[in-house]
Design a protein around this nucleic acid. Structure first.
Lengths: 210, 210
DNA sequence: AATAGTTTGTAACAAAAGTTACCTAGCTTA
DNA sequence: TAAGCTAGGTAACTTTTGTTACAAACTATT
């Protein structure tokens, strides 16, 4: 465990903090698709992502979903941070996008480390900042872009996250994450294929030009 | 100055911190409509809002605007927090929504206080959390609501912020903040008027039922 | 009062997105 | 192989939003 922790967080934290994390943290492996947290749940530990990617989703009253952003290695869920502190419920759903490895930190330690380690404080501030930036990007997309542009961005991000230009995904799944209907997605994907940007197969999409 | 500071922040900060703020902070009064910060600017001090309200706007490449949220008394601009720390440029525009009073804190103090005062740390964390929550609400609105519902919410929020059920605002201004066109807003306002929710006048809108 | 500018109303149309319906292709499994 | 299921293609239509154009109402200024 130490090696993977050090790989992802060694440049951020001093050795003393790393070994504390190693002591109190519990290692956790999840496979793609597994739910890590749901809306309305209380949070009792904070995840540090060591490998893989996690997608963060928002839901409205009707149960309609919307993808907010992805978390990658070396990042944490900023939502969790204050959910822990304020003992409030989660506002979001977190699902493993790929197989992933995490270290779970009991929330009691968080406040302790905030006083004790400057590097931890900076990490927490940095995490908040990154999340705000990501959320701003999400706002930009849904407010300023048309669905075809959003779709293209979405495909590009998926390629980046999965590290594979062939995405194993159905039109329906895309529709859920972009909060639209399957027919709309099929239509736009066809348009993108005609433009030569992607190639469509059953259950998968090949992203050709980024 | 002390009295207003204490009124807005007395319950958050200990006396020692309050008097430090009083020493190093500069008092600033702005009038409605005045720009406090713009996209791409560097930030050299952090504002603590003592009275009034500030609106936070986002802009796309074409110069189209979108209202993100309002800041009220006792709040601060979370964006500023890490802009200061990371010495990055502002991602947003801040404009006084009403006449407002602020205390500007030099950014050097921020890091110092983060180590020194637990109440300051908590304030910063709390601010981040509130901003994330507000941004989530914004995302909800633009992703899940139709324009007529967004408009109604917008009017209700304006009433809350201004403390006056008669809003002095033009259809064009609303259109800018919701990132749509004047014609659309006029159309929907007329619909809301017919439903008895508002009464329209030149340069003002009376919000009847909330 | 005449003029110019601003604000609002509205019609007519276009584009984008959402909905319904139905078909076909491919895969799975009895 | 037949039956059943899932994924995807597409047409036809509706709704929502955006655009253009123009007129009317009001305000401010000369």
């Amino acid at each position: 465990m130490i090696s993977e922790l050090k790989e992802s967080y060694g440049m951020l934290f001093e050795d003393e903090l790393l070994s504390e994390i190693n002591q109190v943290g519990t290692f956790k492996e999840v496979s793609a698709g597994q739910k890590l947290m749901d809306i309305g749940e209380y949070i009792r530990s904070m995840p540090l992502l060591v490998s893989g990617a996690i997608k963060i989703l928002r839901e409205d009253e009707d149960g309609d979903e919307l993808l907010l952003y992805f978390l990658e290695r070396g990042e944490t869920c900023a939502m969790t941070l204050t959910c822990c502190m304020g003992h409030t419920k989660s506002e979001i759903r977190a699902i493993a996008e790929t197989d992933a490895k995490l270290v779970m930190i009991p929330i009691q330690k968080m406040e302790e480390w905030t006083s004790k380690y400057k590097s931890w404080r900076n990490f927490v501030f940095q995490s908040y900042h990154e999340r705000l930036e990501e959320l701003l990007k999400t706002v930009d997309s849904i407010a300023f872009l048309k669905m075809d542009e959003r779709l293209l961005k979405y495909l590009q991000e998926k390629v980046h996250i999965s590290g594979d230009s062939t995405l194993r995904i159905t039109h329906q799944e895309i529709a859920y994450e972009l909060h639209t209907s399957r027919v709309v997605i099929s239509r736009l994907l066809k348009k993108l294929e005609k433009l030569g940007k992607i190639v469509l197969h059953r259950n998968s999409i090949e992203v050709v030009s980024l």
